[in-house]
Nucleic acid binder design. Structure first.
Lengths: 149, 149
DNA sequence: TATGAAAAAAATTATTG
DNA sequence: CAATAATTTTTTTCATA
């Protein structure tokens, strides 16, 4: 991936609706060439998809939560990974270094929902110990792409 | 925002390039009506932007890092928030409950970069204490929209 | 608010250098 | 591999219900 590719990705990141002609004049390529580069970037997997950045509050997902999770000794770790992939609330799940095994990021309507979420993890016999951190505000929230399950 | 709006957002989230005619036939509206709804959703701020989901490894940002930060007693908190917004490595910054004040998410090329990042925080006299967590793997990585600064 | 049809714009493809 | 030009598709506008 060369410098022009990075610039194309940068421009599309800011506004994926920009026309090929527009992008072309920014990076110094003809529209059809830009089109071809985007096709290549998509085919190679560098561009995973064209998507939306959505305001989570507009969708009623006001509360951003991080949960540190230590799995039970006898937990089925593969099942947990699969579970986190398809769970409608879980936006991210990372296997991390440090005292905790997993860091899970989720969005809920209100903190009261967290209780049910943790109960669910217990029912599946995943949860050993956990620590829940609630976001008060976000100087830099990052983009939000609603999860489709 | 009604149910049709949610479905439109859902469809565009999966593929923001779907044509208005396509979306219309899915939700039972004419292309021009779908266009108008998208215009409204964008105007109201529910849709923040059309963007890309990019593979971070293709951009060389292999390593996902979380840093817990407790600011110095005398730190300029407003300056820190501003700093995190414009820092090229920081993807998210959240003010959180619990023992740590801030949770910062960043992507770097390699763990060795983290040292420099923390040094920078110290130079700015933001950093009190911190704890760094490195992601080993991500069962659910979430979407990645490169930051443009 | 929703529509269909017309108009404008854009994306895509084929052809050529 | 990139550019132009032709073709097709899509978006946008607008008059109307």
């Amino acid at each position: 991936m060369d410098n022009i590719d990075l610039r194309i990705i940068g421009l599309l990141t800011l506004d994926a609706k920009r026309s090929l002609a527009d992008i072309g004049s920014s990076v110094g390529l003809a529209p059809s060439t830009v089109n071809e580069q985007i096709r290549r970037l998509t085919a190679s997997g560098a561009i995973r998809r064209f998507t939306l950045d959505v305001d989570p509050t507009a969708m009623g997902m006001q509360t951003l939560v991080f949960v540190w999770i230590a799995l039970r000794e006898d937990a089925d770790e593969t099942a947990f990974r699969e579970y986190s992939k398809t769970h409608p609330l879980i936006l991210e799940c990372h296997h991390v270094t440090g005292a905790w095994a997993y860091l899970v990021k989720l969005r809920v309507i209100a903190p009261s929902e967290i209780e049910g979420f943790l109960a669910e993890l217990k029912e599946h016999r995943f949860l050993g110990r956990s620590e829940t951190v609630i976001t008060l505000s976000s100087p830099l929230p990052g983009s939000f792409t609603p999860k489709e399950v």
